[in-house]
Design a protein around this nucleic acid. Structure first.
Length: 413
RNA sequence: GUGAGUAUAGCUCAGAUGGCAGAGCGUCGGACUGUGGAUCCGAAUGUCACGGGUUCGAUCCCCGUUACUCACCCCA
């Protein structure tokens, strides 16, 4: 037997319903904020990610599905969707188009990691990108949208963690200060962190090793060192959050694993998940467009993990309005087919099965289908043109003419 | 990439000192010829993950591989 690839999975009823619900809610909310969808290819040139996400990040160093195609080009299954969206924006010169400044995407992403709870090799993200607006309002609205999306799906218990990682100029300044500090405690830091001091200094702040934690506790805090502009930006974002009563926690050690972030970074986490507790993550990336060859235009975005969200969602109620058509005898089949066709044209969901069954068996099938109704069509019904509609939830039966059924099922009349 | 645990029916899981492979649930059929869910009766379903070793004999012990689960790293 050939099985699915490690870290991938098949999605079907009932879990698929959660995904459809997520997508539906997301599309609804995004359009309320003036967003439109963008779909980019799953395959990109490897260079796109090494240049944007960063050569020194784990994602690029060890987590990408990269291969050579038949002409020897290095291609990569996208590990995230921000770089592809920005690539598309630049390629089509859409960065000045207001209509294309608010984009959302829904789709699969790929990272070659060891699977565990809430983490897969093919996973799915819903995300947004807001192009060409440098103002703190955008950071706030971005977070607000994510929060509204979660709320609309019944997820209320999330913690919003927020921080600023400064801009190109002031971050460098902080990094050298942090480097000086960390170098004093080299002996206390784990081997990973000793390497990070030079290659990816900020990430030391994120280390969970106990001995490193001690050093980090007393380390310089980035918000104290960022430039006035960045400080101003950050305080406006937090001010908006306060004004609109969105609880948040300033987390000085929150630095994210992608190099392109500037100023605001944020994460939404849930204690109900395992150790992979981030549902939404994102921030501002003012330098990304220019670093990919576009003009110097700022952006903001986040991504939400659908698998993690689905872990938090209750099993969705069975709100199907499915009708199972129980027909008896070959001489009823043609009539049953005509009924099915009519009902579907009126918007009723109808299952009609090919095998001739006893009524008892048909009702059993209806139950297994989790149908709300059974419509019984036998000799009597064909003659009288009064069909027997049975409510499978409470067992009640009523005789109706065919043209009365859609209204009865869809509107309860 | 690292560590630990697990792998037996569609699902959940038992099993023996190493000697014919088990249960519950589910599925299908019947009791009940036009009325499902309850009850009773019956039936089908297994390369005991894969490959090697030890043994008269291995699903069980040993080695290896793969997959799954959780954790580390990192991230959604």
């Amino acid at each position: 037997m050939v099985s699915s690839v490690k870290g991938t999975f098949d999605l079907f009823y009932p879990d698929i319903k959660k995904y459809l619900l997520m997508e539906e809610c997301a599309r609804k909310i995004f359009s309320l904020y003036g967003f439109s969808e963008i779909r980019t290819p799953i395959l990109e040139h490897t260079e796109l990610f090494s240049r944007s996400v960063g050569d020194e990040t784990d994602i690029v160093k060890k987590e990408m599905y990269t291969f050579l195609d038949k002409k020897g080009r290095s291609l990569t299954l996208r590990p995230e969707n921000t770089a592809p969206v920005i690539r598309a924006i630049i390629e089509h010169k859409l960065y000045e188009s207001p209509r294309h400044s608010r984009l959302y995407y829904i789709g699969p992403q790929f990272r070659y990691e060891r699977p565990q709870k809430g983490r897969y090799r093919q996973f799915h993200q819903i995300g947004i990108e807001i192009i060409n607006d440098p103002f703190p309002l955008i950071d706030f609205e971005g977070i607000l949208i994510a929060k509204e999306l979660l709320n609309s799906l019944g997820i209320l218990e999330v913690e919003v963690k927020i921080n600023s990682v400064g801009c190109k100029k002031c971050r460098q300044n902080f990094i050298s200060i942090l480097k000086d500090y960390l170098n004093k405690f080299k002996g206390d830091l784990c081997s990973d962190c000793n390497e990070r001091i030079e290659r990816n200094t900020l990430r030391v702040l994120d280390c969970k090793v106990a001995s490193c934690q001690k050093v980090i506790e007393n380390s310089p805090v980035i918000i104290d060192y960022i430039c006035d502009e960045c400080k101003e930006h950050f305080s406006k974002v937090t001010q908006f959050l306060n004004d609109f009563e969105i609880p948040f926690k300033i987390t000085p050690r929150l630095v994210r694993g992608l190099d392109y972030y500037t100023k605001t970074v944020f994460e939404m986490t849930s204690f109900k998940l395992g150790s992979q507790d981030a549902i939404v993550g994102g921030g501002r990336y003012d330098g990304l467009i220019s670093s990919l060859g576009g003009p110097d235009i700022p952006s903001f975005g986040w991504a939400l993990g659908m698998e993690r969200l689905s872990l938090l969602m209750e099993d969705s109620p069975l709100n199907d309005n499915l009708l199972y058509l129980a027909w008896m005898g070959e001489e009823c089949l043609k009539f049953a087919m005509e009924c099915a066709s009519y009902l579907r044209s009126k918007g009723v969901e109808v299952v009609l099965e090919g095998s001739l069954r006893s009524l008892k068996n048909s009702l059993k099938r209806a139950e297994r289908f989790q149908a709300n109704y059974s419509l019984i069509i036998g000799e009597d019904e064909v003659k009288s043109e009064l069909l027997t509609l049975k409510n499978m939830r409470n067992g009640e039966q009523i005789a109706l003419k065919l043209n009365e059924i859609p209204n009865f099922i869809l509107n309860g009349e």
